[in-house]
Design a binder for these strands. Structure first.
Length: 350
RNA sequence: GACAUAUUUCGAAAU
């Protein structure tokens, strides 16, 4: 029995639900009796993948075999329905479990709140939240985070900030997820000074700001042409020994180019290559555009050649930028020459 | 012994 239980758990953890299903069947066929947890783990695995029909089958099977489902069993069913977007059906199951004599716990409510938020029903989610309070349940960080995420995604940033206040007032300490969610929301709403404060607060409190979040903040700052804060962010990353990725390098280079700091941009290009990141076409084009902006057309031309040497073919954009600039400066011959070269390489500039 | 939450890619030329 122990072996089967272990196998079922293991398979579900690895995402091999079908194998877990086989073990469960085999267990029953050999007249062992799986317990609630065995059944629930399998149901959980199925629900996480939205395979609700099969989850129902197992639920029926367990009841037929005289095994009572627990709150957790129901929670997984409810979660699965939320995952496939059937929140109404999920709410229906809450009633089913109540009729069966089980009180929903804070996990049940958190699942519902998250589900409602993910389909944009924020007011409803708030109602469920209040209902949980009315039941004497204490919302935890995850409950708040789910509600917070919904409000951030829905652009309700002021409400989101109010939620943070509530958290402090109810002694629910915000965690890394709270801050990351808020930071992402503020970036999405272009509220960069607040986003930067959240970022600083995270650093102060020792919460890790992940690379994706840093990149999206940096991208927002670049969009706003806020080179000062962007470069502060990049430099801080370097100080703290964060690893850069290709996107991060691209954004940094882009930021430098916009600020006309071409030497820095070039240094970063070499640095990223020596760290074995391959610059993409946008990284190169940003640099070409940066040189053009400064009228350094020969450097821009060199960059085209550098690309060719390093196995990245300049695209229509690369050529367009430079040809246009040649014309602007009255270097008609160079423009024509580059156009011809582009054609030879199979690109037709417009 | 099983359970819930967030995680960029809206980016470069032209138009």
């Amino acid at each position: 029995t122990l072996t089967y239980t272990n196998m079922i758990h293991c398979m579900c953890l690895k995402g091999k639900v079908d194998d877990a299903l086989c073990f469960l069947d085999e267990m029953i066929n050999k007249n062992y009796t799986p317990d609630v947890v065995d059944y629930t783990v399998v149901i959980s695995g199925l629900c996480k993948r939205g395979r609700m029909e099969q989850a129902y089958e197992i639920l029926e099977k367990m009841q037929k075999n005289g095994c009572e489902p627990s709150v957790w069993t129901y929670n997984h069913i409810i979660d699965g329905l939320c995952i496939v977007g059937q929140v109404e059906a999920a709410l229906e199951w809450v009633r089913v479990m109540q009729n069966g004599g089980f009180d929903p716990n804070i996990y049940t409510y958190t699942i519902l709140i998250d589900g409602l938020c993910k389909v944009g029903k924020l007011d409803w989610a708030k109602e469920i939240f209040d209902e949980a309070l009315g039941m004497g349940l204490k919302p935890n960080v995850v409950t708040y985070n789910a509600l917070l995420n919904g409000h951030c995604k829905g652009g309700k940033l002021n409400e989101a900030l109010t939620l943070i206040e509530d958290m402090y007032q109810t002694d629910c300490e915000p965690d890394r997820v709270t801050y990351t969610t808020l930071l992402q929301g503020l970036v999405k709403g272009s509220r960069f000074s607040e986003a930067l404060s959240v970022h600083d607060e995270m650093e102060e409190k020792g919460y890790e700001v992940n690379l994706q979040t840093l990149n999206s903040l940096a991208r927002g700052l670049c969009r706003e042409a806020n080179h000062k804060d962007a470069s502060r962010l990049f430099k801080r990353m370097q100080q703290r020994g964060y690893a850069h990725d290709a996107t991060n390098y691209y954004l940094w280079i882009h930021s430098c180019c916009m600020a006309q700091e071409m030497e820095a941009a070039q240094t970063l290009l070499y640095e990223m290559m020596s760290n074995s990141y391959t610059p993409n076409i946008m990284t190169y084009n940003t640099i070409i555009k940066g040189f053009c902006k400064q009228g350094r057309l020969d450097d821009a031309t060199k960059m085209i050649n550098f690309m060719l040497e390093n196995g990245t073919n300049p695209d229509i954009v690369s050529y367009n930028i430079l040809i246009k600039e040649f014309f602007k400066q009255g270097r008609v011959n160079d423009a024509h020459q580059l156009y011809a070269a582009a054609l030879e390489r199979g690109v037709v500039p417009s």
